[in-house]
Simulated assay, not measured.
Amino acid sequence: MTTADPTLDDIEAIARKTLAALPAPFVAGAAEVHLAVVDWPPQDVLDELDIDDPLDLTGLYDGIPLTRKSVLDQPVQPDTIWLFREPILDELAERGNVTLEELVAHVTLHELAHHFGWSDDDIAMIDRWWE
């Protein structure tokens, strides 16, 4: 990468590298999830989540967690991990103590954990990112 801001493709490449490096038990579940990288979260998503500042949402899992899926579920859209470039870059600048690769990997894995049915509290027990 150059000194210019990372592109959507740069962030996607980091996320895909993160997913490719998963331990074997998680590879199949991760392969079922679509990855989407866009600049900003959509306003309807922010409204639904009651988030006023779009910089507060770096990623989102949109789908039915594996722990709640049923063979009776008819998929309307693929389960998706959304990464939001501008909020990620804002958090990167605010933190100053992590690399882009570390931050994108963290957001990607956090959202993938929701796909596996983990709550934010479950994730926080093993990923103490804020420390």
Rank of each mutant, 00 (worst) to 15 (best):
T108R: 06
A30N: 09
E86D: 02
A15S: 10
V27S: 14
L55G: 07
T80K: 11
L19Y: 04
D50Q: 14
K69G: 10
R95K: 13
D73L: 00
L60Q: 00
K69H: 02
H34P: 02
V37P: 07
L19S: 12
D120L: 02
P23K: 10
N97V: 15
T18Q: 05
A124V: 14
D9P: 11
I126P: 10
D39G: 11
A21V: 05
D9S: 12
V107H: 03
H115M: 05
M1A: 15
E91V: 01
D47Q: 13
Q74K: 13
L100P: 09
I81C: 03
D73K: 09
L19N: 12
P6D: 04
E131Y: 01
G117I: 04
L109P: 02
A13E: 09
A105R: 14
G117L: 00
F26E: 04
D120H: 14
I88T: 06
E86W: 00
D120E: 10
P65D: 04
L49K: 11
G29D: 06
K17A: 12
I11Y: 06
D127L: 12
L8M: 08
I123N: 09
L8K: 14
T99C: 09
A31M: 03
K69R: 12
T2F: 02
E101H: 14
G29C: 04
R128Q: 12
M125S: 14
G63H: 00
E131M: 09
A13F: 03
W40F: 08
